[in-house]
Amino acid sequence: MKIFYCCYGSAHSSVVAAAIHLGWLPSDRLPDTEEFKRLPHYDKTNSFEIGYPFFMGRDERGIEVYIIGMTSQRKLVKRAIVSFLEHSGVNTDNLFFIDTLPLVNFKTKVGGILSRRLGLVFLGRPLTIKGIQERYFEFVKLVEIVKKRVEISTKA
């Protein structure tokens, strides 16, 4: 079983969701700025890396957790990945693609553009973190839903 947390550029929302899933970020309190900055890939993924799945780790059940940036073509990229795997003989029934982009607010979007696209990290990164903090418990809720869905599917 594999979980892919998907966002625009695999630099912010997918990283946060994967980090919560893996227990790197708490689910019972708001993380501080430094906790976000220490995350692998947080506000560090380059545009040429979009579309590349990054392995983040295995959760407590041994399930592989990945992040992937899909720009505005999430359906197309997902279809391409699934199609390729099916044609390669891989069973795709146990793949979960979780879109984290709907949780991103205006601050995080602007911060991401400033940091990743324009290279103004000193302005953009703090703005992305502030935006994520404002919606943080929605990320926690999403991860809880994903974990329950995965648990149900493993029992079936």
Rank of each mutant, 00 (worst) to 15 (best):
Gly69Lys: 09
Arg58Cys: 09
Gly57His: 01
Tyr5Ile: 03
Phe106Pro: 01
Val82Thr: 12
Val104Arg: 01
Pro102Arg: 01
Pro126Ala: 15
Glu49His: 11
Thr100Cys: 14
Lys107Leu: 05
Val104Gly: 04
Lys37Arg: 15
Val90Gln: 00
Cys6Lys: 08
Trp24Lys: 09
Lys109Trp: 03
Thr71Pro: 02
Ile98Gln: 00
Lys44Arg: 13
Phe54Ser: 05
Pro31Val: 07
Lys130Val: 02
Asn105Ile: 06
Pro26His: 15
Cys7Ser: 05
Val15Thr: 05
Arg74Glu: 13
Tyr8Asp: 14
Glu138Ile: 09
Leu103Gln: 00
Gly124Ser: 11
Phe55His: 15
Ser13Asp: 10
Ser13Ala: 12
Asn94Tyr: 07
Ala11Gly: 14
Ile20Ser: 04
Asp59Gly: 03
Gly111His: 04
Phe55Glu: 14
Arg135Ser: 11
Ser14Pro: 03
Phe96Ser: 04
Tyr42Gly: 10
Ile152Pro: 02
Lys107Tyr: 01
Thr100Leu: 02
Lys109Asp: 04
Val110Trp: 09
Arg38Cys: 11
Pro31Met: 05
Glu134Met: 07
Lys148Trp: 11
Arg29Ser: 14
Ile132Pro: 08
Leu76Ile: 13
Leu30Ala: 08
Ile81Arg: 03
Gly119Thr: 01
Leu22Lys: 13
Glu34Thr: 08
Arg125Ser: 07
Asp93Asn: 01
Leu76Arg: 15
Ala156Lys: 11
Pro126Gln: 14
Tyr52Gln: 15
Pro126Gly: 15
Tyr136Ser: 06
Glu60Leu: 07
Leu123Lys: 03
Phe54Arg: 02
Pro126His: 15
Arg117Met: 12
Leu76Lys: 14
Gly119Ser: 03
Glu144Val: 09
Leu22Pro: 12
Gly119Val: 02
Val143Ile: 07
Lys155Gly: 13
Leu39Arg: 05
Tyr136Ala: 07
Phe54Ile: 02
Asn94Gly: 05
Ile98Asp: 00
Leu114His: 02
Pro53Gln: 13
Arg58His: 04
Ser10Asn: 15
Lys2Trp: 13
Asn105Ala: 03
Asn94Lys: 05
Ser72Val: 13
Ala17Phe: 01
Arg125Leu: 10
